[in-house]
Write a protein that binds this DNA or RNA. Sequence first.
DNA 1: CGCTTCACG
DNA 2: ACGTACGTGAAGCGC
Length: 892
Amino acid sequence: MGTEKQKVLLIDGNSIVNRAFYAMPPLTNSTGLHTNAVFGFTTMLLKVIEEEKPTHLLVAFDAGKATFRHEGYSEYKGGRQKTPPELSEQFPLLKELLHSFSIKQFELSGYEADDIIGTWTRLAEEQGQTAVIVSGDKDMLQLASDRVTVLLTRKGVSEVDRFTPEAIAEKYGLAPQQIIDLKGLMGDASDNIPGIAGVGEKTALKLLAEYGTVESVLEHAGEIKGKLGENVRAHQEDARMSKQLATIFREVPVERTWDELRWEGYEAAELAAAFRKLEFKSLIERLDLSGAGSHVGEEAKAAADYEVVWAGPGAEREWAALNEALPAAESVLIEWSGDNPHQSLGIGLAIAAGGRVFAVPHEALAGDEAARLREWLADGEAPKRGYDLHGAELALARSGYELRGHAFDVQLAAYLLDPTEANPSLAGLLQRQGLAPIAFDDAVYGKGAKFRVPEREALAAHLAAKADAVRRLAGPLAEELDRAGMRSLYYELEQPLSLILAGMEKQGIDVRSQSLAELGQEFQGEIERIVGEIHRLAGFEFNIGSTKQLGDVLFEKLGLPVVKKTKTGYSTDAEVLEKLEPFHEIVRLILHYRTLTKLQSTYIEGLLKEIRPEDGKIHTYYRQTIAATGRLSSQYPNLQNIPIRLEEGRRIRKAFVPSEPDWRIVAADYSQIELRVLAHISGDEGLVEAFRQEMDVHTKTAMDVFGVQADQVDAGMRRQAKAVNFGIVYGISDYGLSQNLHITRREAAEFIEQYFAAFPGVRKYMDDIVAQAREDGYVTTLMGRRRYLPDIRASNFNLRSFAERTAMNTPIQGTAADIIKLAMVRMDEKLKELGLRSRMLLQVHDELVFEVPPDEVETMAALVPETMARAFPLSVPLKADVSVGTNWYEAK
DNA sequence: CGCTTCACG
DNA sequence: ACGTACGTGAAGCGC
């Protein structure tokens, strides 16, 4: 290191970007990306570099999500508003720009930027070097020392105030370390740190002048007079915790050496290219970069390297060009608004072809000029690469358009590559692929009530950017699918299934509103009677549906024992109420009230609202890219949770009927598919043998766990064995099983041990799959579906345990999902092949529901279970039970 | 908009 | 010592 004087410039990335975002006027580049915060950050950066002339440089970021501070205090940074998308889309731009500046950046999950900066200032001090911090956060002042200077932004980001220990003493009369005490006393509304109620900056400073530290203030709390003294005494814990929250952690594992932060300036050509992309023309001039790197191909090009053509109503030339380009279309993007594509409002579409992107507003689809486009969209031989083609198909159907020829769906591919990704938006996918970014939808359209479609120019730019994004993503994602061994899972299972789902959804299921309404009448009468009873027993009227009011009645008015608490108050869930039943007759009524109001609001009223008046049917929307295990999910409404367990609710199913006279409902469900999958995957001999002999698996489990003969297994033993089997599938823990069976943990552990002794192959599977997950970072299903489990290596017990249970469960649940999906594809083929009129209507995880003409009932009652059973050969037989009825209730 | 509760597999 | 059973969606409450 020599004797050279070194100075590290440490920038609080999140703080500066935030300040810049709110201080700068809006600014977008030609593709609609917001850039104002990046611009503000850059001007600040250039200025500080010029003034401070650092030898080392680092920008630190918060790693997002939870930090270790949340573990002790879940409200930390509570009331803070969410980052608007106009800002969040700028982070990747900034990170890329910093890269072009050759500036190091660092973030670490579990830590905030100030902790990283605090750690580096400590390291600088230890090495006898100096540090300069740039932030907008006053907390940083605690780090000031004779070697560390803090620059706090003022008025946005362009100007800074310089804080040395002397300057802090002058301004606050405090030493840097006392900044933490200051915050401990006064709190910080923006971080949701409470401090002592009623204590603001003035009072806090007075107290510190007298006592020096929070601890000393608290020690002398007894001598502080009046209201202030009361407050101090009442909020001692708040003060201690607030001080702790405000204290910057200076021992972050920073994973870098001092020398790695060395900064030797930027590469002019690289920076020029980055500025061009962002369209920061003034900065290019200011740094005199206009000559730099303009010859270097791709990177130096402007943001969009395609021409946007607006094919609006009456734009004859543009339509002619579009029609001509259609055969060469590389991607298509259908844009609509609303969450439910069955009820969507069209926005428009865009088609990328040969260096141009044609943007078509939705209105234009109604005109004659769209005839060729209509044909092309419906042409199964014209391949479409798109994003969410399933949703697009439904949305287009509303405008009388068909969509055929699904060739590749970027959203579906992205789901297979990482089914846990919360935001598989095009903008998000580009970020993760390291491709040139586009604006997030929320930033273009606004969110919720603020949603509005922008004017022509901005809309065209965004639609074009998205269509181009599909074009750019399709190749890389397809290659990734190949590399991950999911090519056939995609092309032979998921993509064909997406078409089948769209067909089922468009078909819909007939639901008799008359039957639902009559049942609702009945429920209503019963609910009113029960409400009266409950209010009479309580002695006054209250809202039974409010857990807060109900808790007051049960635990304060009636004095029932508190069984469990939630983070907001008393728990009143069914488990708690069942325990309370013996204490008061009101409890049973409340349970019944809950059941009935659930049925009434979710199933009677909820389903009635979803029946389309045009055809009397319900059209659900199956989501193929939501569940992390590979299952489908169902929305608007959810038809996968229609009541069945209790007779009262089961009657709802009588309203689900065939849509043609004399047709029948045929339903078939897999018997014990998950345990059969487990038998296959684990190869456990006992379990495999049990299924080969078609034994009752819960009875078999009871025999082996309790060590008895079949005829000695009573109902209670079978019930317990069944719970153990559930536990095994879910990734067993003694705690979970004990909760479920209301037994002690020790007893539960005993059961589990017995189980594993009886089924050693299952134990081996559980051990192996966890080890494998730790090794690979992911688990797979029989058909190669993947789920990443980053927490499997976490040091946090909770996170790690959760990941371990997921590792055990996902291959089982996921393989079952694979199998029924495959059965759906096979059934669809069979129906076509045999020319049957029967229609597949619903999938409920292990069940398929059809409507069937009378002359096909016999055929289908054999074909469906057979097809399901043969969908995917395992080492144990798969079995599906079938039943027929005039409605879904009867088909049981 | 987060929390609680409860419907399903 | 740690403290949850796996996967979903919808409704009502109350801030």
